[in-house]
Design a protein around this nucleic acid. Sequence first.
DNA 1: TCTGGGGTCCTAGGACCC
DNA 2: TCTGGGGTCCTAGGACCC
Length: 421
Amino acid sequence: MAIYGLVDCNNFYASCEKIFRPDLANTPIVVLSNNDGCVVARSSEVKKLGIPAGIPYFKVKHQLESIGVKIFSSNYTFYGDISNRVMSVLREYTGEIEIYSIDEAFIDLTTTPKPENLGKLLHSKISQGVGVPVSIGIASSKTLAKVATDVAKKNPQYGGVYSMLDKNSVNNILKDFPVSKIWGVGPQTTKFLNNHSIFTALEFINCEDDWIRKNLKILGLKTVWELRGRDCITMETSPKNKKSILSSRSFGQPVTSQKQLQQAISSYIAIACKKLRSQKSVANYLHVFVRTNKHKKHELQQHSSQLIRLQTASNYTPDLTKASQEAVTKLFQPGYKYKKAGVVLTGLHPENQVQENLFIPSEKTPKQNKAIAVLDRMNNRFGRNKITLASSGIKPKWIMRCELRSNQYTTNWQEIPNIKI
DNA sequence: TCTGGGGTCCTAGGACCC
DNA sequence: TCTGGGGTCCTAGGACCC
């Protein structure tokens, strides 16, 4: 039987913000999304106050301020670094891990003699060594490990680690576990199940396989099997190359000119192409999309995209920038206030397997290759966007808001914490 | 005034081929 | 005169995840 552990950092972004701010140890804090748009992380004190996840900041700003909640813009560079530290601890004690998201990792405990003991050890090592609290769930499938982690998180008496390896404990937990909280069951499926009087995970696993397959397809069936303890979703220890790469942002203020829109798109292309080069792939297709603010019903609305097939698959920023200009020309309409735009690269293939176009040479000259390699190195060393194409604009107006960002304590010498002795 | 960003997988349906 | 049908590939869109 397989045994999985899931290690999940509690309130990750909020916990990160507290690491170098012992003065905030018991202060309620929230972290906002890009553009200071939504509340994406809440410390436990804030959760208790009933502030929901994902709520637009402006709706709760007054409430948060009036009760003394400390607000942070998101600081992804910092969270990424803390995440790496957590993952290093896991690797040190468990060998191969599957990094599932910035704040979660699966570990394979199949051959670990006492999984729960290792869980306790990891819990204390991460807490002491990195400074963020984690919850660890142990079970015979990933989906059950997710459930176990939820139990560990909600019940402090287990000390942050909960094992669901024996059958009795599984049924005991599943009978009170709402289907809406199952990994892989979203709002649509919840609605469907509830309409059929299925409310708990236990009721869900007691359904007939045929019925589940017919209505919820193969994914639904896999989820049920996993909840019955059958291991269907195995470990992925080496990160796979992405099949699509997306870069998009909402604008700090509406964009109304074609030039600004083009600048924004150019800068997203630069980000996406850099990711593409780092996985040594080329893209065949480029999607460019633009959106107006759907919440402003009285304004002109546009939600459209252009798909461009590149003449030759490429990861060379100027190629894709040029292609994007054509798309922007088709998409842009005067009089519309654009709120968000982005690019998606698809049809990705390894760069050494490019299908040559008979009429158009795809090989970049050595000079072009060198230039783009230098650009990547400089930007890696000195920070994203230190060197850009002129088409991305300089100090653009549409740049995101992030007025309440904390320091990059661990990744920027200028912002390293000071200690007064 | 103010509503995130980056992914994956699956399915249906059209295009195309033989 | 008779005008098929199955397989495959691709894309758009939906649902879900963090």
